[in-house]
Simulated assay, not measured.
Amino acid sequence: MSGADIWITGIGLVSAHGEGRAAHLAALAGDTPTPLDADSHAPFPLHPAPALELDRQIPKKGDQRQMEPWQRLGTYAAGLALDDAGARSLVAEMDLIVAAGGGERDLALDESVLAALAGLPPAEAATQLNALLAGGLRPTLFLAQLSNLLAGNISIVHGVTGASRTFMGEEQAGADAVRIATARLAEGRGQAALVGGGFVAARWDLMVLYHSAGLLRQGGFAPVFTRDDAPGAIPGTLAAFLVLENAASARARGARGLARITGVACEQARRDGQDGSAAAAARAFARLALPDGPLTVLSGATGVAGPTAVERDFLAGLGRDITLRSAGSRLGWGVEATFPASLALGALMLAEGVQPPSLEPAEAPMAAPAQDLLVTGFGAWRGEALAHLRAIPAEEQP
Score class of each variant (00 low, 15 high):
residue 1 M to C: 00
residue 1 M to D: 03
residue 2 S to R: 15
residue 2 S to V: 14
residue 3 G to M: 03
residue 4 A to K: 13
residue 5 D to W: 08
residue 14 V to L: 07
residue 16 A to Y: 03
residue 19 E to N: 09
residue 19 E to Y: 12
residue 20 G to F: 02
residue 23 A to P: 05
residue 25 L to F: 11
residue 30 G to Q: 02
residue 32 T to W: 00
residue 36 L to A: 08
residue 38 A to P: 04
residue 38 A to C: 02
residue 40 S to D: 14
residue 42 A to T: 07
residue 44 F to K: 11
residue 47 H to C: 10
residue 49 A to C: 05
residue 49 A to Q: 13
residue 53 E to I: 11
residue 58 I to S: 02
residue 60 K to W: 15
residue 61 K to P: 11
residue 61 K to V: 15
residue 64 Q to L: 12
residue 66 Q to N: 12
residue 76 Y to D: 01
residue 80 L to A: 11
residue 81 A to K: 09
residue 84 D to G: 08
residue 88 R to M: 11
residue 90 L to D: 09
residue 92 A to F: 03
residue 96 L to V: 02
residue 104 E to Y: 02
residue 109 L to W: 00
residue 116 A to V: 04
residue 119 G to R: 02
residue 126 A to S: 09
residue 131 A to Q: 13
residue 132 L to K: 13
residue 134 A to F: 00
residue 135 G to N: 06
residue 135 G to E: 15
residue 139 P to N: 10
residue 140 T to A: 13
residue 150 L to D: 05
residue 151 A to C: 08
residue 165 R to A: 10
residue 167 F to I: 00
residue 168 M to R: 14
residue 172 Q to N: 12
residue 178 V to M: 00
residue 182 T to G: 03
residue 184 R to E: 06
residue 185 L to Y: 01
residue 187 E to A: 13
residue 188 G to I: 01
residue 191 Q to S: 14
residue 193 A to C: 14
residue 199 F to V: 11
residue 203 R to C: 08
residue 204 W to V: 05
residue 208 V to L: 15
residue 208 V to K: 10
residue 209 L to P: 10
residue 214 G to W: 05
residue 223 P to A: 04
residue 224 V to K: 08
residue 226 T to F: 01
residue 227 R to W: 04
residue 227 R to H: 14
residue 228 D to F: 04
residue 229 D to W: 14
residue 230 A to M: 11
residue 230 A to T: 08
residue 232 G to H: 07
residue 234 I to W: 01
residue 235 P to I: 09
residue 239 A to T: 12
residue 245 E to C: 05
residue 251 R to V: 09
residue 252 A to W: 01
residue 253 R to H: 00
residue 253 R to Q: 04
residue 254 G to V: 13
residue 255 A to K: 11
residue 256 R to D: 02
residue 259 A to R: 11
residue 261 I to K: 02
residue 264 V to G: 07
residue 269 A to K: 02
residue 269 A to Y: 00
residue 276 G to C: 01
residue 278 A to C: 15
residue 280 A to M: 02
residue 281 A to T: 09
residue 281 A to M: 14
residue 283 R to V: 13
residue 284 A to C: 09
residue 286 A to H: 09
residue 291 P to H: 00
residue 292 D to R: 03
residue 292 D to M: 09
residue 293 G to N: 09
residue 297 V to S: 01
residue 302 T to M: 08
residue 303 G to Y: 06
residue 310 V to S: 07
residue 311 E to N: 05
residue 314 F to D: 11
residue 315 L to S: 09
residue 319 G to W: 07
residue 321 D to E: 14
residue 324 L to A: 04
residue 325 R to S: 14
residue 325 R to C: 10
residue 326 S to I: 04
residue 329 S to P: 06
residue 331 L to I: 04
residue 332 G to T: 08
residue 332 G to W: 01
residue 333 W to S: 07
residue 340 P to S: 05
residue 341 A to I: 03
residue 342 S to D: 14
residue 344 A to F: 00
residue 345 L to I: 12
residue 347 A to G: 03
residue 348 L to S: 11
residue 348 L to T: 13
residue 349 M to P: 06
residue 354 V to A: 15
residue 355 Q to F: 01
residue 358 S to D: 06
residue 360 E to N: 05
residue 361 P to I: 15
residue 363 E to K: 06
residue 369 P to K: 11
residue 371 Q to D: 15
residue 375 V to R: 10
residue 375 V to I: 12
residue 385 A to E: 00
residue 391 A to R: 11
residue 392 I to T: 03
residue 392 I to V: 15
residue 393 P to Q: 12
residue 394 A to I: 13
residue 396 E to V: 05
residue 397 Q to P: 00
